[in-house]
């Protein structure tokens, strides 16, 4: 019994010695998320427009039903999303939309500081998603 007591005490004492803390002092130091991290979405642009062809696959697959797409045709006769909006308050960051996209027009970034002050600020429209 006493041996175990001593063992326990020695472990905690070892941790007390400098260099054992694993805390990251968040706003001062940040961890880099892994490459597979699923953060804020981004619409991938090409030279003059977004890659998205408004195929409606992502709003269909989205389990949270938080993507709104409205397709339209531009002067070259190509389909493009007139409206593309993701409601991040409902998004569960599952990444299905990215997987579903046939033209790899959507990706997820490492951006995770998504707090905001107003509900409207969580609706990410095409302009914000293209950034």
């Amino acid at each position: 019994m006493f041996k175990e007591f001593i063992q326990g005490l020695s472990i905690t004492f070892k941790h007390l010695l400098p260099g054992h803390s694993t805390t990251v002092q968040y706003p001062d130091e940040r961890l880099t998320p892994s490459p597979r991290f699923r953060g804020l979405h981004r619409l991938v642009p090409t030279q003059d427009r977004e890659k998205c062809v408004a195929c409606y696959l992502c709003p269909t697959v989205c389990p949270a039903k938080c993507i709104t797409v409205e397709s339209a045709e531009n002067e070259k006769g190509e389909k493009y999303p007139q409206v593309y909006e993701i409601d991040l308050l409902r998004c569960i960051f599952c990444g299905y939309c990215v997987e579903a996209c046939p033209v790899e027009a959507l990706e997820m970034t490492a951006e995770y500081e998504l707090a905001n002050f107003h509900r409207e600020d969580f609706k990410f429209n095409k302009k914000r998603l293209l950034k």
Partner: peptide, 9 residues
């Protein structure tokens, strides 16, 4: 002390 013993700060 408890923080450091639990590897916190």
């Amino acid at each position: 002390v408890i923080g450091h013993m639990q590897t916190r700060l």
